Amino acid sequence: MKLVNVTNSYKQLVNKQLENTDAYLVKVFSAGNTTVIYTEAIQHIEILIINKKRALRKTEVNEILAYLLKSTPKEKYDKEQISIIELKDVTEISIPIITDLVQN
């Protein structure tokens, strides 16, 4: 699976996220019919995976998670604390940031 950064095509979504949430970074990726919204805030990382054509496979979710976390230092999060919520055409992944590393 190849994720393509399409953030520039979603300027309105990105601006709304930055204005209305605690996020300081928003990126949008595409992999065919699958859209991935990556949001990073001081205390958490959120990943929203959407595919309205078909159900997401566990392997896809794991590949996307691994791809997006490879640039995040492993000491910044606890793998055991990652929460995954799966619905019909949406999967939400929430990753709390370890508070010792949170800067005030």
Rank of each mutant, 00 (worst) to 15 (best):
N20K: 13
I45E: 04
S9M: 12
N8I: 06
Q17K: 15
E80G: 09
V61K: 10
T34P: 00
V61H: 05
Y77R: 00
T72G: 01
Q43R: 15
V26M: 06
N62C: 03
L13K: 11
E60H: 07
L13N: 08
Q81K: 14
R57A: 14
S71G: 07
N62F: 02
Y38V: 09
I49Y: 00
H44M: 03
Y77F: 06
A66P: 05
K76M: 09
I37K: 13
N20G: 07
S9H: 11
P73D: 09
L65W: 00
T35A: 12
N62I: 09
I45Q: 02
A55L: 10
L56R: 02
A41D: 08
E63C: 05
L69P: 10
S83P: 01
K70S: 08
D78E: 12
I64E: 00
V28F: 05
T72V: 15
K79M: 05
L48A: 14
L65Q: 05
I64F: 00
N33M: 06
E19G: 02
T72E: 10
V61L: 10
E60G: 04
G32Y: 07
N8D: 11
E80H: 13
N33Y: 04
N20T: 15
L25V: 12
K79F: 02
I85F: 02
L56I: 03
A66K: 14
K52Y: 04
L69K: 07
E40C: 04
I47M: 05
P73C: 08
G32Q: 09
L25C: 09
H44C: 01
L25A: 10
A31G: 11
L68V: 04
L48K: 14
R54E: 14
Y67S: 15
V36P: 05
L18K: 11
R54T: 07
L13T: 08
L13I: 03
N62T: 11
E46D: 13
N51W: 00
I82V: 11
Y24W: 13
T39N: 10
R54V: 02
K70W: 00
I82M: 05
Y77W: 01
